[in-house]
Write a protein that binds this DNA or RNA. Structure first.
Lengths: 110, 110
DNA sequence: TATTTATATTGCAATATTACGATACATATT
DNA sequence: AATATGTATCGTAATATTGCAATATAAATA
């Protein structure tokens, strides 16, 4: 085989995995960090900020977009990319859940 | 090529990507969720909780361990796995950073 | 209309991931 | 020592990801 057994897991588990996977590459972390840094959406120069060829960057942007972590809109000359807050909300709530569980956990192990 | 250009990114970016990637599979999300649910570490039956063969589960556990998201210790008969809080702290602080940036961002886009 | 500029798509090679059967290992029990 | 139980490793097939050159597309400008 080789393909993920997606159907064997819940929608929520798959959705979280997709979001996490999208962040599972340093270039995509770098893109997100850059979008946060410039603090706006007019950003027609993402390619120049990364040590990768233009088609590769385009592909990473596409994956982030598919996962729901960024949005892209036409903005005059170039395309304007920005953080999609909805996607980040979903992951964040997972980690908040994790934290909650960890805090009230008894200290009975490790 | 095909290999990730890891060396072109910062240590922090690579580390975050490794953590996110480890969570980028529904089986591994399921494992984390199960560990949180049982709320303890005596868990010699993770295999039975997942719709995957034992070697596959073992492999997923190894990846979570390598990424620093779970810890495994010998505990009598079976091996005791549990959440590694340190790994989760690292991701959490990234998302806190994201949130902070988003909150104070001007509404000048999208 | 021709040119420029920014981004997307295609095609392909190198590599990584996913899954599992077979098998090895390690510990406890008989 | 032999057996049982839980876990890890090996080997391998199927599939996915990564990266880029070449090329296509789309919008603004000359």
């Amino acid at each position: 085989m080789g393909a993920s057994k997606t159907h064997s897991f819940t929608n929520q588990q798959n959705e979280l995995a997709i979001l996490a996977k999208a962040l599972g590459h340093p270039a995509r972390i770098a893109i997100i960090e850059y979008l946060l840094k410039v603090d706006t959406c007019i950003c027609g120069d993402i390619v120049n900020e990364l040590p990768l060829a233009q088609p590769t960057v385009s592909q990473h942007l596409k994956e982030l977009k598919n996962a729901g972590l960024i949005k892209g809109n036409f903005e005059g000359v170039s395309i304007c990319y920005c953080i999609d807050e909805l996607g980040f909300e979903k992951i964040k709530s997972f980690f908040q859940d994790v934290t909650l569980h960890l805090e009230k956990r008894k200290n009975n192990c490790c």
